[in-house]
Amino acid sequence: MEETRIVHGYWELSTFNFNIEARGINLMLEGFKEKKLKGIKCHQCGMVYLPGPFYCRKCHVNIDEPVEISDHGTVRTYTVQYADIRGEPMPEPRVSAMVQFDGCDSWVMGVVQCDPKDIHVGMRVKIKWKEQTVGNMQDMEAFVPE
């Protein structure tokens, strides 16, 4: 039988453009500057999204009502990470959790600064903001126990 051979292929992705509407993300990042969480609420069903989309998934209507959300919340689920996605061991185990902030329906993912032995579902946490917030994703340094 003839051996199979490899030919090189590629998928050129640089020719794609994406128009985006970033109102919900911009609102969130603007809030970060003041160390606040800002989402968008559906006027019809009351669902509060973070970051806010331009429409409600359930009601299928345009939504545009900014709403302030507490930076304290509850751990709804978590995982402790010992290796990265390619299998390389982590220098230290890392705790990442999904937190539901008070007054918000969406859950937000972030790193919890705590001993992996202490993390649990239902744990109360708050955001540890950077001292100088500038309006980017790094402003939210971590979640820490209340």
């Binding site: 994406f18 128009n19 985006i20 509407e21 331009f54 429409y55 299928h60 209507v61 345009n62």
Partner: peptide, 23 residues
């Protein structure tokens, strides 16, 4: 001059409104 998401939202929402139905 629109996003992929806004395009399908406007088309479906517009169609439903014209027919007096929802999703």
């Amino acid at each position: 001059h629109t996003t992929r998401e806004r395009l399908v939202f406007n088309l479906t929402r517009g169609l439903f409104d014209e027919l007096g139905i929802d999703r």
